[in-house]
Amino acid sequence: MHRSLPVMDQRKFGETLRRDAWWLPNIPIVLILSAFIVYATWAAFQNANYTFGPYLSPFYAPELWGDSPHAWFGPKPLWWPGWLPFSPALIILPIPATFRMTCYYYRGSYYKAFWADPPACAVGEPRKTYLGENSFPLILQNLHRYGLLLAFIFLFFLWWDVWKAMWFEGAGGVEFGIGVGTVVMTLNVVLLTGYTLGCHSMRHVVGGMLDRISGAPVRRQLYNVSSACNRGHAKWAWTSLFSVALTDAYIRLCATGVFTDLRIF
């Protein structure tokens, strides 16, 4: 390896003088992210049990094409490739997946936990070469803000779904109500909103790019809100990841009759 300064040799993989359990934080990251990917993939290919009454699973929202009453444009489109099993979630999920995959917080976490790049701070790495985010494919991480844009648009539809989850079919027609599912869906969207507002690209676009933000009072307020959310970005990232999966699971279990959705009023 080219060394422009006569510094000490690179340590071997996992070599360190650290005494703490430096490997420990990586374990839940690997387990949780892997479990989420497996569950989301399984749920996406089900193409069933993703609605229950006025509730719609966030994995399937917005449902552009599909067989449920929530679908915007009717059933499976004609252009859908015959070799690929149809599911409305397959149209939707790439967008939040891109948003999360390119998220600055997740990047730092999965580079460490999955690629050991490095496995932890001041711990030896398995590789001698390093390209960083300068070349393909990791250079594509720079498109995070486009993932943000699409995820932000989706957020409006998720809030709209929460509104629709407050209207139930009753004996006298459609009536206002709050079910446990409504609360679950609301909590999920609140967490997703906190995660999205605190996104580093959001923080940059709303005001961070300005050096004199005092001259733009609206953007200053937005920047302050985004910065406040950004300080807890890791917490928003994890809680919203859990809430998306749990919301899908709740609706799925209601739809399959395992859970009974209780009406609060």
Partner: peptide, 11 residues
């Protein structure tokens, strides 16, 4: 100055 090398490990 190589800012693209930073992979945000926050060390």
């Amino acid at each position: 100055q190589g800012i693209g090398y930073c992979n945000i490990t926050k060390c």
